[in-house]
Design a protein around this nucleic acid. Structure first.
Length: 576
DNA sequence: GCCGTTTTCGGCCCGACTGTTTTCAGTCG
Protein backbone atom coordinates (compact mmCIF):
# COMPACT_ATOMS: atom_id res chain seq x y z
CA UNK A 1 0.00 0.00 0.00
CA UNK A 2 1.59 3.28 -1.05
CA UNK A 3 0.58 6.80 -0.06
CA UNK A 4 -1.52 7.43 -3.17
CA UNK A 5 -3.68 4.36 -2.58
CA UNK A 6 -4.12 5.09 1.09
CA UNK A 7 -5.16 8.65 0.27
CA UNK A 8 -7.66 7.35 -2.29
CA UNK A 9 -9.22 5.03 0.27
CA UNK A 10 -9.56 7.87 2.79
CA UNK A 11 -11.13 10.11 0.14
CA UNK A 12 -13.57 7.40 -0.81
CA UNK A 13 -14.38 6.85 2.85
CA UNK A 14 -15.04 10.58 3.29
CA UNK A 15 -17.52 10.59 0.41
CA UNK A 16 -19.34 7.57 1.82
CA UNK A 17 -19.54 9.20 5.25
CA UNK A 18 -20.90 12.38 3.68
CA UNK A 19 -23.62 10.36 2.02
CA UNK A 20 -24.45 8.68 5.29
CA UNK A 21 -24.85 12.12 6.84
CA UNK A 22 -22.00 11.77 9.32
CA UNK A 23 -20.60 14.92 10.93
CA UNK A 24 -18.99 17.17 8.34
CA UNK A 25 -16.02 17.48 10.66
CA UNK A 26 -15.45 13.77 10.68
CA UNK A 27 -15.61 13.59 6.89
CA UNK A 28 -13.31 16.57 6.68
CA UNK A 29 -10.82 14.78 8.90
CA UNK A 30 -10.63 11.98 6.30
CA UNK A 31 -10.36 14.42 3.40
CA UNK A 32 -7.67 16.44 5.15
CA UNK A 33 -5.70 13.32 5.99
CA UNK A 34 -5.93 12.13 2.36
CA UNK A 35 -4.64 15.45 1.06
CA UNK A 36 -1.80 15.56 3.59
CA UNK A 37 -0.78 12.01 2.72
CA UNK A 38 -0.72 12.77 -1.02
CA UNK A 39 1.73 15.58 -0.40
CA UNK A 40 4.08 13.68 1.92
CA UNK A 41 7.75 13.53 1.00
CA UNK A 42 8.10 10.05 2.54
CA UNK A 43 6.17 6.84 2.20
CA UNK A 44 3.96 6.14 5.23
CA UNK A 45 5.57 2.68 5.41
CA UNK A 46 8.90 4.38 6.10
CA UNK A 47 7.40 6.79 8.64
CA UNK A 48 5.70 3.85 10.33
CA UNK A 49 9.03 2.12 10.85
CA UNK A 50 10.34 5.33 12.41
CA UNK A 51 7.21 5.51 14.58
CA UNK A 52 6.37 9.01 13.41
CA UNK A 53 2.99 8.65 11.69
CA UNK A 54 1.19 10.38 14.54
CA UNK A 55 3.46 13.41 14.14
CA UNK A 56 1.74 14.15 10.83
CA UNK A 57 -0.76 16.95 11.41
CA UNK A 58 -4.33 15.76 10.94
CA UNK A 59 -3.53 12.13 11.65
CA UNK A 60 -4.33 10.97 15.16
CA UNK A 61 -4.59 7.62 16.90
CA UNK A 62 -7.63 6.39 14.98
CA UNK A 63 -6.50 7.24 11.46
CA UNK A 64 -3.05 5.90 12.26
CA UNK A 65 -4.52 2.55 13.26
CA UNK A 66 -6.44 2.48 9.96
CA UNK A 67 -3.26 3.17 8.01
CA UNK A 68 -1.48 0.33 9.80
CA UNK A 69 -4.45 -1.91 9.09
CA UNK A 70 -4.10 -1.07 5.40
CA UNK A 71 -0.41 -2.05 5.46
CA UNK A 72 -1.42 -5.46 6.71
CA UNK A 73 -4.68 -6.18 4.86
CA UNK A 74 -4.86 -3.68 2.00
CA UNK A 75 -8.02 -2.16 3.45
CA UNK A 76 -9.60 -1.29 6.79
CA UNK A 77 -12.60 -2.77 8.51
CA UNK A 78 -14.70 0.41 8.80
CA UNK A 79 -14.18 1.03 5.07
CA UNK A 80 -15.38 -2.43 4.07
CA UNK A 81 -18.36 -2.16 6.42
CA UNK A 82 -19.37 1.21 4.95
CA UNK A 83 -18.94 -0.13 1.40
CA UNK A 84 -21.46 -2.85 2.23
CA UNK A 85 -24.00 -0.29 3.41
CA UNK A 86 -23.90 1.94 0.34
CA UNK A 87 -24.68 1.07 -3.29
CA UNK A 88 -21.57 1.29 -5.45
CA UNK A 89 -22.98 3.85 -7.90
CA UNK A 90 -23.82 6.43 -5.26
CA UNK A 91 -20.37 8.01 -5.22
CA UNK A 92 -20.59 8.45 -8.98
CA UNK A 93 -23.88 10.31 -8.51
CA UNK A 94 -22.27 12.59 -5.95
CA UNK A 95 -19.58 13.37 -8.51
CA UNK A 96 -22.13 14.87 -10.90
CA UNK A 97 -21.63 18.65 -10.62
CA UNK A 98 -24.42 20.22 -8.62
CA UNK A 99 -25.29 17.06 -6.75
CA UNK A 100 -23.95 16.73 -3.24
CA UNK A 101 -24.50 14.18 -0.51
CA UNK A 102 -27.89 15.52 0.57
CA UNK A 103 -29.36 15.45 -2.90
CA UNK A 104 -27.91 12.02 -3.69
CA UNK A 105 -29.47 10.72 -0.51
CA UNK A 106 -32.84 12.26 -1.34
CA UNK A 107 -32.85 10.57 -4.77
CA UNK A 108 -31.81 7.26 -3.25
CA UNK A 109 -34.40 7.28 -0.49
CA UNK A 110 -37.38 8.67 -2.40
CA UNK A 111 -36.75 7.28 -5.89
CA UNK A 112 -34.45 4.33 -5.27
CA UNK A 113 -31.88 5.86 -7.64
CA UNK A 114 -28.53 4.05 -7.30
CA UNK A 115 -26.64 4.85 -10.50
CA UNK A 116 -26.07 7.81 -12.80
CA UNK A 117 -28.09 6.05 -15.53
CA UNK A 118 -31.05 5.63 -13.19
CA UNK A 119 -30.76 9.28 -12.22
CA UNK A 120 -30.80 10.25 -15.86
CA UNK A 121 -33.95 8.20 -16.44
CA UNK A 122 -35.68 9.68 -13.37
CA UNK A 123 -34.96 13.18 -14.68
CA UNK A 124 -36.24 12.38 -18.17
CA UNK A 125 -39.41 10.85 -16.74
CA UNK A 126 -39.96 14.01 -14.64
CA UNK A 127 -39.91 12.12 -11.38
CA UNK A 128 -37.35 14.52 -9.85
CA UNK A 129 -39.61 17.57 -9.89
CA UNK A 130 -42.08 15.92 -7.54
CA UNK A 131 -39.53 15.90 -4.72
CA UNK A 132 -39.26 18.68 -2.14
CA UNK A 133 -37.11 21.64 -3.23
CA UNK A 134 -36.82 20.18 -6.72
CA UNK A 135 -38.33 21.47 -9.93
CA UNK A 136 -38.15 21.57 -13.70
CA UNK A 137 -34.92 23.53 -13.78
CA UNK A 138 -33.19 21.03 -11.51
CA UNK A 139 -34.10 18.21 -13.90
CA UNK A 140 -32.62 20.16 -16.81
CA UNK A 141 -29.52 21.00 -14.88
CA UNK A 142 -28.93 17.39 -13.87
CA UNK A 143 -29.32 16.11 -17.43
CA UNK A 144 -26.93 18.75 -18.77
CA UNK A 145 -24.38 17.99 -16.05
CA UNK A 146 -24.48 14.27 -16.81
CA UNK A 147 -24.17 14.87 -20.56
CA UNK A 148 -21.18 17.15 -20.09
CA UNK A 149 -19.51 14.69 -17.79
CA UNK A 150 -20.00 11.82 -20.25
CA UNK A 151 -18.35 13.58 -23.16
CA UNK A 152 -15.43 14.60 -20.99
CA UNK A 153 -12.84 11.83 -20.95
CA UNK A 154 -10.35 13.69 -18.79
CA UNK A 155 -12.66 14.06 -15.80
CA UNK A 156 -12.92 17.80 -16.13
CA UNK A 157 -9.21 18.45 -15.98
CA UNK A 158 -7.28 20.10 -18.77
CA UNK A 159 -3.52 20.33 -19.34
CA UNK A 160 -2.16 23.67 -18.14
CA UNK A 161 -1.02 24.70 -21.61
CA UNK A 162 -4.54 24.48 -23.10
CA UNK A 163 -6.16 26.31 -20.20
CA UNK A 164 -3.55 29.03 -20.42
CA UNK A 165 -4.37 29.73 -24.06
CA UNK A 166 -8.12 29.81 -23.39
CA UNK A 167 -7.58 32.16 -20.44
CA UNK A 168 -5.51 34.45 -22.65
CA UNK A 169 -8.25 34.54 -25.29
CA UNK A 170 -10.92 35.42 -22.72
CA UNK A 171 -8.91 38.01 -20.83
CA UNK A 172 -7.95 39.71 -24.14
CA UNK A 173 -11.63 39.78 -24.97
CA UNK A 174 -12.67 41.27 -21.60
CA UNK A 175 -9.94 43.90 -21.74
CA UNK A 176 -11.71 45.42 -24.75
CA UNK A 177 -14.64 46.41 -22.54
CA UNK A 178 -14.71 49.96 -21.19
CA UNK A 179 -16.51 48.66 -18.09
CA UNK A 180 -13.56 46.48 -17.09
CA UNK A 181 -10.49 48.15 -15.67
CA UNK A 182 -8.30 45.12 -15.15
CA UNK A 183 -8.51 41.33 -15.59
CA UNK A 184 -6.31 38.76 -13.90
CA UNK A 185 -5.97 34.99 -13.86
CA UNK A 186 -6.36 33.32 -10.46
CA UNK A 187 -6.99 29.74 -9.29
CA UNK A 188 -4.94 26.67 -10.13
CA UNK A 189 -3.92 28.23 -13.43
CA UNK A 190 -2.12 31.01 -11.57
CA UNK A 191 -0.59 28.41 -9.25
CA UNK A 192 0.60 26.68 -12.44
CA UNK A 193 -0.70 23.25 -11.61
CA UNK A 194 0.06 20.63 -14.29
CA UNK A 195 -3.64 20.27 -15.03
CA UNK A 196 -6.44 22.63 -14.13
CA UNK A 197 -10.08 21.90 -13.40
CA UNK A 198 -11.54 25.27 -14.27
CA UNK A 199 -10.32 28.73 -15.16
CA UNK A 200 -10.76 31.41 -12.49
CA UNK A 201 -10.64 35.05 -13.47
CA UNK A 202 -11.13 38.24 -11.49
CA UNK A 203 -11.81 41.68 -12.86
CA UNK A 204 -11.87 45.18 -11.41
CA UNK A 205 -14.97 47.07 -12.42
CA UNK A 206 -17.10 49.89 -11.06
CA UNK A 207 -20.00 48.52 -13.13
CA UNK A 208 -20.18 44.88 -12.01
CA UNK A 209 -23.39 44.00 -13.79
CA UNK A 210 -22.18 45.38 -17.11
CA UNK A 211 -18.90 43.52 -16.66
CA UNK A 212 -20.77 40.28 -15.97
CA UNK A 213 -22.95 40.62 -19.05
CA UNK A 214 -19.89 41.34 -21.15
CA UNK A 215 -18.48 38.02 -19.91
CA UNK A 216 -21.62 35.91 -20.31
CA UNK A 217 -22.31 37.59 -23.65
CA UNK A 218 -19.02 36.57 -25.30
CA UNK A 219 -19.62 35.04 -28.70
CA UNK A 220 -18.15 31.63 -27.97
CA UNK A 221 -19.99 31.01 -24.68
CA UNK A 222 -21.72 27.64 -24.93
CA UNK A 223 -23.67 27.77 -21.71
CA UNK A 224 -24.19 30.17 -18.80
CA UNK A 225 -24.05 28.18 -15.58
CA UNK A 226 -24.69 31.04 -13.23
CA UNK A 227 -24.82 34.78 -13.46
CA UNK A 228 -25.19 36.93 -10.37
CA UNK A 229 -24.36 40.50 -9.45
CA UNK A 230 -20.67 39.93 -8.70
CA UNK A 231 -19.97 36.49 -10.07
CA UNK A 232 -20.68 34.38 -13.13
CA UNK A 233 -19.73 31.00 -14.59
CA UNK A 234 -19.80 29.79 -18.18
CA UNK A 235 -18.87 26.83 -20.34
CA UNK A 236 -16.42 27.68 -23.09
CA UNK A 237 -15.60 25.48 -26.13
CA UNK A 238 -13.45 22.52 -25.20
CA UNK A 239 -15.54 21.92 -22.08
CA UNK A 240 -13.80 24.66 -20.13
CA UNK A 241 -15.62 25.86 -17.06
CA UNK A 242 -14.72 29.53 -16.55
CA UNK A 243 -15.55 31.58 -13.44
CA UNK A 244 -15.40 35.35 -13.25
CA UNK A 245 -15.57 37.35 -10.05
CA UNK A 246 -15.90 41.14 -10.05
CA UNK A 247 -14.05 43.14 -7.44
CA UNK A 248 -13.61 46.78 -6.49
CA UNK A 249 -10.14 48.28 -6.70
CA UNK A 250 -9.51 48.55 -2.98
CA UNK A 251 -10.14 44.83 -2.30
CA UNK A 252 -8.20 43.61 -5.33
CA UNK A 253 -5.35 42.08 -3.31
CA UNK A 254 -7.69 40.19 -1.01
CA UNK A 255 -9.80 38.92 -3.87
CA UNK A 256 -6.81 37.84 -5.98
CA UNK A 257 -5.36 36.00 -3.01
CA UNK A 258 -8.68 34.38 -2.19
CA UNK A 259 -9.34 33.14 -5.72
CA UNK A 260 -5.78 32.00 -6.28
CA UNK A 261 -6.13 29.55 -3.38
CA UNK A 262 -5.50 26.81 -2.97
CA UNK A 263 -8.49 26.17 -0.78
CA UNK A 264 -6.24 24.42 1.73
CA UNK A 265 -3.77 27.30 1.73
CA UNK A 266 -6.63 29.74 2.37
CA UNK A 267 -7.99 27.67 5.23
CA UNK A 268 -4.54 27.71 6.79
CA UNK A 269 -4.33 31.49 6.42
CA UNK A 270 -7.76 31.98 7.97
CA UNK A 271 -6.83 29.86 10.94
CA UNK A 272 -3.64 31.87 11.32
CA UNK A 273 -5.67 35.10 11.14
CA UNK A 274 -8.12 33.80 13.76
CA UNK A 275 -5.26 33.02 16.12
CA UNK A 276 -4.26 36.69 15.84
CA UNK A 277 -7.83 37.88 16.46
CA UNK A 278 -8.81 38.55 12.87
CA UNK A 279 -11.32 37.01 10.53
CA UNK A 280 -10.19 36.74 6.92
CA UNK A 281 -12.37 36.73 3.81
CA UNK A 282 -12.11 37.80 0.18
CA UNK A 283 -12.77 41.45 1.06
CA UNK A 284 -10.14 41.89 3.74
CA UNK A 285 -9.32 41.26 7.35
CA UNK A 286 -11.80 42.05 10.13
CA UNK A 287 -10.64 42.79 13.66
CA UNK A 288 -12.82 40.49 15.76
CA UNK A 289 -12.89 42.85 18.76
CA UNK A 290 -13.65 46.11 16.96
CA UNK A 291 -15.35 44.79 13.81
CA UNK A 292 -13.11 47.03 11.70
CA UNK A 293 -12.40 45.77 8.17
CA UNK A 294 -8.97 46.35 6.63
CA UNK A 295 -8.94 45.97 2.85
CA UNK A 296 -5.88 45.05 0.81
CA UNK A 297 -5.21 46.35 -2.64
CA UNK A 298 -2.18 44.09 -3.03
CA UNK A 299 -1.42 40.51 -2.02
CA UNK A 300 1.87 41.65 -0.61
CA UNK A 301 0.09 43.83 1.99
CA UNK A 302 -2.21 41.00 2.93
CA UNK A 303 0.62 38.56 3.60
CA UNK A 304 2.59 41.21 5.48
CA UNK A 305 -0.37 41.88 7.76
CA UNK A 306 -0.43 38.22 8.65
CA UNK A 307 3.26 38.34 9.51
CA UNK A 308 4.24 36.37 6.42
CA UNK A 309 6.71 36.86 3.61
CA UNK A 310 5.12 37.06 0.17
CA UNK A 311 4.36 33.58 -1.14
CA UNK A 312 4.65 32.78 -4.84
CA UNK A 313 1.38 31.31 -6.12
CA UNK A 314 3.15 28.04 -7.02
CA UNK A 315 3.80 27.43 -3.32
CA UNK A 316 0.27 27.95 -2.09
CA UNK A 317 -0.75 24.35 -1.55
CA UNK A 318 -0.49 24.11 2.23
CA UNK A 319 2.53 21.86 1.91
CA UNK A 320 4.46 23.66 4.60
CA UNK A 321 4.81 27.06 2.91
CA UNK A 322 3.01 28.98 5.66
CA UNK A 323 5.28 27.49 8.34
CA UNK A 324 8.35 28.13 6.18
CA UNK A 325 7.29 31.73 5.66
CA UNK A 326 6.73 32.27 9.38
CA UNK A 327 10.26 31.03 10.03
CA UNK A 328 11.68 33.09 7.15
CA UNK A 329 12.79 29.87 5.48
CA UNK A 330 11.06 30.11 2.11
CA UNK A 331 12.97 28.63 -0.84
CA UNK A 332 14.50 31.00 -3.40
CA UNK A 333 12.63 29.48 -6.31
CA UNK A 334 14.33 28.73 -9.59
CA UNK A 335 13.62 31.05 -12.53
CA UNK A 336 14.00 30.76 -16.27
CA UNK A 337 17.10 32.95 -16.29
CA UNK A 338 18.87 30.35 -14.12
CA UNK A 339 18.70 27.74 -16.90
CA UNK A 340 21.96 27.40 -18.82
CA UNK A 341 21.27 24.47 -21.12
CA UNK A 342 19.17 21.47 -22.03
CA UNK A 343 20.07 17.78 -21.74
CA UNK A 344 17.27 16.18 -23.74
CA UNK A 345 16.92 17.24 -27.36
CA UNK A 346 16.23 15.24 -30.54
CA UNK A 347 17.57 16.03 -33.99
CA UNK A 348 16.52 14.71 -37.40
CA UNK A 349 18.98 11.87 -36.86
CA UNK A 350 16.09 10.16 -35.05
CA UNK A 351 12.56 11.61 -34.75
CA UNK A 352 13.33 15.32 -34.36
CA UNK A 353 12.42 17.80 -37.09
CA UNK A 354 15.60 19.89 -37.06
CA UNK A 355 19.25 19.48 -37.94
CA UNK A 356 21.89 19.61 -35.23
CA UNK A 357 22.95 23.01 -36.57
CA UNK A 358 19.45 24.42 -36.26
CA UNK A 359 19.21 23.14 -32.71
CA UNK A 360 22.57 24.63 -31.78
CA UNK A 361 21.61 28.01 -33.22
CA UNK A 362 18.25 27.97 -31.44
CA UNK A 363 20.04 27.21 -28.18
CA UNK A 364 22.48 30.08 -28.78
CA UNK A 365 19.52 32.41 -29.35
CA UNK A 366 18.21 31.39 -25.93
CA UNK A 367 21.52 32.23 -24.31
CA UNK A 368 22.43 28.64 -23.44
CA UNK A 369 26.00 27.53 -22.73
CA UNK A 370 25.41 23.93 -23.74
CA UNK A 371 22.91 21.58 -25.31
CA UNK A 372 22.94 17.80 -25.43
CA UNK A 373 21.70 16.07 -28.58
CA UNK A 374 20.12 12.89 -27.29
CA UNK A 375 18.63 10.94 -30.17
CA UNK A 376 16.82 7.67 -29.62
CA UNK A 377 18.55 4.30 -29.42
CA UNK A 378 17.82 1.45 -31.87
CA UNK A 379 15.03 -0.28 -29.88
CA UNK A 380 12.80 2.71 -30.49
CA UNK A 381 12.46 1.79 -34.14
CA UNK A 382 9.36 3.91 -34.72
CA UNK A 383 11.45 6.95 -33.79
CA UNK A 384 14.25 6.00 -36.17
CA UNK A 385 16.54 5.10 -33.28
CA UNK A 386 20.28 4.99 -33.97
CA UNK A 387 22.11 1.72 -34.60
CA UNK A 388 25.53 1.26 -33.01
CA UNK A 389 27.15 2.37 -36.24
CA UNK A 390 24.97 5.47 -36.61
CA UNK A 391 25.61 6.40 -32.98
CA UNK A 392 29.34 6.53 -33.72
CA UNK A 393 28.65 8.73 -36.73
CA UNK A 394 26.41 10.88 -34.54
CA UNK A 395 29.30 11.43 -32.14
CA UNK A 396 31.57 12.40 -35.06
CA UNK A 397 29.02 14.85 -36.42
CA UNK A 398 28.80 16.54 -33.02
CA UNK A 399 32.59 16.76 -32.78
CA UNK A 400 32.65 18.53 -36.15
CA UNK A 401 29.85 20.87 -35.10
CA UNK A 402 31.73 21.87 -31.97
CA UNK A 403 34.58 23.10 -34.15
CA UNK A 404 32.13 25.49 -35.79
CA UNK A 405 30.69 27.12 -32.66
CA UNK A 406 32.47 29.08 -29.93
CA UNK A 407 29.28 30.32 -28.24
CA UNK A 408 27.94 26.95 -27.26
CA UNK A 409 29.10 23.46 -26.43
CA UNK A 410 27.16 20.63 -28.03
CA UNK A 411 27.25 17.52 -25.88
CA UNK A 412 27.00 14.12 -27.51
CA UNK A 413 24.30 12.08 -25.92
CA UNK A 414 21.61 9.46 -26.25
CA UNK A 415 18.15 8.82 -24.97
CA UNK A 416 18.89 5.17 -24.47
CA UNK A 417 16.08 2.65 -24.00
CA UNK A 418 15.88 0.66 -20.83
CA UNK A 419 14.84 -2.73 -22.16
CA UNK A 420 12.28 -4.94 -20.44
CA UNK A 421 14.98 -6.79 -18.49
CA UNK A 422 16.62 -3.58 -17.30
CA UNK A 423 19.57 -3.83 -19.72
CA UNK A 424 20.44 -0.82 -21.84
CA UNK A 425 20.21 -0.60 -25.61
CA UNK A 426 23.91 0.15 -26.12
CA UNK A 427 26.96 -1.60 -24.72
CA UNK A 428 29.00 0.04 -21.98
CA UNK A 429 31.82 0.52 -24.51
CA UNK A 430 29.57 2.71 -26.62
CA UNK A 431 28.00 4.57 -23.70
CA UNK A 432 31.45 5.44 -22.44
CA UNK A 433 32.16 7.40 -25.60
CA UNK A 434 29.22 9.76 -25.00
CA UNK A 435 29.30 12.99 -23.00
CA UNK A 436 25.93 12.29 -21.44
CA UNK A 437 23.60 9.31 -21.16
CA UNK A 438 19.89 9.85 -20.67
CA UNK A 439 17.86 6.67 -20.14
CA UNK A 440 14.14 6.07 -20.47
CA UNK A 441 11.42 3.46 -20.66
CA UNK A 442 9.46 3.50 -23.93
CA UNK A 443 8.04 0.00 -24.36
CA UNK A 444 6.76 -2.79 -22.16
CA UNK A 445 4.86 -0.27 -20.06
CA UNK A 446 2.44 -2.80 -18.59
CA UNK A 447 5.01 -4.64 -16.51
CA UNK A 448 4.01 -5.17 -12.90
CA UNK A 449 5.22 -2.88 -10.16
CA UNK A 450 8.03 -5.11 -8.98
CA UNK A 451 9.46 -5.75 -12.45
CA UNK A 452 9.22 -2.12 -13.53
CA UNK A 453 10.89 -0.88 -10.36
CA UNK A 454 13.71 -3.41 -10.72
CA UNK A 455 14.10 -2.55 -14.40
CA UNK A 456 14.57 1.16 -13.67
CA UNK A 457 16.80 0.60 -10.66
CA UNK A 458 19.15 -1.64 -12.62
CA UNK A 459 19.48 1.07 -15.28
CA UNK A 460 20.28 3.62 -12.58
CA UNK A 461 23.01 1.33 -11.31
CA UNK A 462 24.87 1.51 -14.63
CA UNK A 463 27.97 3.66 -14.13
CA UNK A 464 27.58 5.47 -17.48
CA UNK A 465 24.03 6.65 -16.92
CA UNK A 466 23.51 10.30 -15.95
CA UNK A 467 19.81 11.14 -16.18
CA UNK A 468 16.53 9.23 -16.01
CA UNK A 469 14.07 10.84 -18.45
CA UNK A 470 10.31 11.18 -17.87
CA UNK A 471 10.53 8.76 -14.93
CA UNK A 472 6.85 7.77 -14.65
CA UNK A 473 5.91 7.77 -18.35
CA UNK A 474 2.58 9.51 -17.93
CA UNK A 475 0.98 11.42 -20.81
CA UNK A 476 -2.13 13.50 -20.26
CA UNK A 477 -5.15 12.08 -22.05
CA UNK A 478 -3.12 9.08 -23.23
CA UNK A 479 -1.83 7.00 -20.40
CA UNK A 480 -1.41 7.06 -16.64
CA UNK A 481 2.03 6.63 -15.04
CA UNK A 482 3.32 3.09 -15.21
CA UNK A 483 3.25 1.15 -12.01
CA UNK A 484 6.49 1.49 -10.06
CA UNK A 485 7.75 2.23 -6.59
CA UNK A 486 8.84 5.86 -6.67
CA UNK A 487 10.41 5.64 -3.21
CA UNK A 488 12.78 2.90 -4.38
CA UNK A 489 13.62 4.71 -7.61
CA UNK A 490 14.40 7.94 -5.77
CA UNK A 491 16.57 6.03 -3.32
CA UNK A 492 18.41 4.33 -6.21
CA UNK A 493 19.00 7.73 -7.83
CA UNK A 494 20.38 8.98 -4.53
CA UNK A 495 22.63 5.95 -3.95
CA UNK A 496 24.05 6.06 -7.48
CA UNK A 497 24.24 9.86 -7.73
CA UNK A 498 21.91 9.98 -10.73
CA UNK A 499 19.73 12.87 -11.82
CA UNK A 500 15.97 12.61 -12.33
CA UNK A 501 14.33 14.60 -15.10
CA UNK A 502 11.47 17.02 -14.97
CA UNK A 503 10.30 16.59 -18.55
CA UNK A 504 8.95 19.98 -19.64
CA UNK A 505 6.62 18.75 -22.36
CA UNK A 506 3.24 20.18 -21.33
CA UNK A 507 1.73 16.76 -22.03
CA UNK A 508 4.16 14.98 -19.71
CA UNK A 509 5.40 17.22 -16.86
CA UNK A 510 7.14 14.19 -15.45
CA UNK A 511 8.31 14.16 -12.67
CA UNK A 512 5.40 16.15 -11.34
CA UNK A 513 5.64 18.65 -8.47
CA UNK A 514 5.06 16.15 -5.66
CA UNK A 515 7.59 13.60 -6.87
CA UNK A 516 10.16 16.26 -7.70
CA UNK A 517 9.78 17.69 -4.19
CA UNK A 518 10.26 14.21 -2.75
CA UNK A 519 13.39 13.75 -4.82
CA UNK A 520 14.75 17.06 -3.54
CA UNK A 521 14.01 16.13 0.08
CA UNK A 522 16.02 12.95 -0.48
CA UNK A 523 18.94 14.95 -1.81
CA UNK A 524 18.48 13.89 -5.45
CA UNK A 525 19.31 16.41 -8.13
CA UNK A 526 16.86 17.19 -10.95
CA UNK A 527 17.27 18.31 -14.56
CA UNK A 528 14.65 20.43 -16.31
CA UNK A 529 14.73 19.13 -19.89
CA UNK A 530 12.45 19.84 -22.82
CA UNK A 531 12.57 16.60 -24.87
CA UNK A 532 12.62 18.90 -27.88
CA UNK A 533 11.52 17.49 -31.24
CA UNK A 534 11.24 20.85 -33.03
CA UNK A 535 13.11 23.99 -32.01
CA UNK A 536 9.98 25.70 -30.63
CA UNK A 537 9.86 23.01 -27.96
CA UNK A 538 12.95 24.53 -26.34
CA UNK A 539 10.60 27.16 -24.90
CA UNK A 540 8.58 24.46 -23.15
CA UNK A 541 11.21 24.84 -20.44
CA UNK A 542 8.72 27.35 -19.01
CA UNK A 543 6.39 24.47 -18.10
CA UNK A 544 9.18 22.45 -16.52
CA UNK A 545 10.13 25.46 -14.44
CA UNK A 546 6.52 25.76 -13.28
CA UNK A 547 6.73 22.20 -11.95
CA UNK A 548 10.13 22.86 -10.39
CA UNK A 549 8.84 25.94 -8.57
CA UNK A 550 5.83 24.00 -7.34
CA UNK A 551 8.34 21.43 -6.07
CA UNK A 552 10.17 24.16 -4.08
CA UNK A 553 13.29 23.74 -6.23
CA UNK A 554 16.08 26.26 -5.96
CA UNK A 555 18.81 26.77 -8.60
CA UNK A 556 21.19 24.50 -6.70
CA UNK A 557 18.75 21.59 -6.94
CA UNK A 558 18.81 21.65 -10.73
CA UNK A 559 21.63 20.30 -12.92
CA UNK A 560 21.12 22.63 -15.84
CA UNK A 561 21.64 25.77 -13.78
CA UNK A 562 25.33 24.83 -13.66
CA UNK A 563 27.83 26.54 -15.90
CA UNK A 564 29.46 24.54 -18.71
CA UNK A 565 32.62 24.32 -16.64
CA UNK A 566 30.78 22.84 -13.67
CA UNK A 567 28.91 20.42 -15.92
CA UNK A 568 32.13 19.19 -17.52
CA UNK A 569 33.70 18.50 -14.18
CA UNK A 570 30.60 16.86 -12.73
CA UNK A 571 29.94 14.63 -15.74
CA UNK A 572 33.65 14.04 -16.34
CA UNK A 573 33.52 15.47 -19.87
CA UNK A 574 36.75 16.68 -21.52
CA UNK A 575 36.62 20.49 -21.58
CA UNK A 576 37.39 20.86 -25.29
C1' DG B 1 -11.87 12.35 13.63
C1' DC B 2 -8.41 16.02 15.15
C1' DC B 3 -6.71 19.23 18.39
C1' DG B 4 -5.21 22.23 22.64
C1' DT B 5 0.46 28.71 26.26
C1' DT B 6 -7.39 30.41 27.47
C1' DT B 7 -9.67 24.35 26.35
C1' DT B 8 -9.01 16.77 27.18
C1' DC B 9 -14.62 19.18 25.61
C1' DG B 10 -16.26 21.75 22.24
C1' DG B 11 -14.79 23.87 18.81
C1' DC B 12 -13.55 22.93 13.66
C1' DC B 13 -12.93 28.97 7.19
C1' DC B 14 -16.04 31.91 4.76
C1' DG B 15 -19.20 33.75 1.33
C1' DA B 16 -21.94 33.78 -3.45
C1' DC B 17 -25.44 31.78 -6.30
C1' DT B 18 -29.39 28.85 -7.48
C1' DG B 19 -33.86 27.10 -7.17
C1' DT B 20 -37.13 26.67 -4.61
C1' DT B 21 -38.76 28.96 -1.42
C1' DT B 22 -41.79 33.22 1.16
C1' DT B 23 -36.63 32.74 4.56
C1' DC B 24 -33.24 29.10 3.22
C1' DA B 25 -30.79 24.61 2.27
C1' DG B 26 -27.54 22.77 -0.70
C1' DT B 27 -23.51 23.14 -3.40
C1' DC B 28 -19.28 24.99 -4.73
C1' DG B 29 -14.72 26.88 -4.48
Amino acid sequence: MDNIRIAEKFNHMAQMLEFKGESQFKTRAYTNAARTIKGLDEELQVLHKEGSIEDIPGIGKILKSKIVEMFETGTFEAYERTMDEIPAGIIEIMNVPGIGPKTARLFYEKLGVQTVDELSRAAREHRIRRLPRMGEKQEDKILRSIARQKEDKDHGRHPYVLAKDIAREITDNLKQSSDIEKVAVAGSLRRKQDTVGDIDLIAISEEPEKAISCFTGMEKVEEILESGTTKAAIIYPGNFHVDLRIVSRDSYGSMLQHFTGSKEHNIHLRKLALSKGYSLNEYGMTDESTGKLTKFSSEDDLYKNLGLEYLSPELREDRGEVEASLRGKLPKLIERKDIKGDFHVHSNWSDGANTMEELAEAAILRGYEYIAITDHSHSTGVANGLSDKRLLEHIDAIDKLNEKYDEIRILSGTECDIKADGKLDYSNDLLEQLDIVVVAVHAGLDQDRKKMTKRIVSALENEHVDIMAHPTGRKFGKRPPYDMDMETVIQAAKDNEKVLEINSSPWRLDLNDINAKRAKEHGVMLAINTDTHTIDHLDNVEFGINMARRAWLEPDDVLNTMSLKQICSRLDIPKE
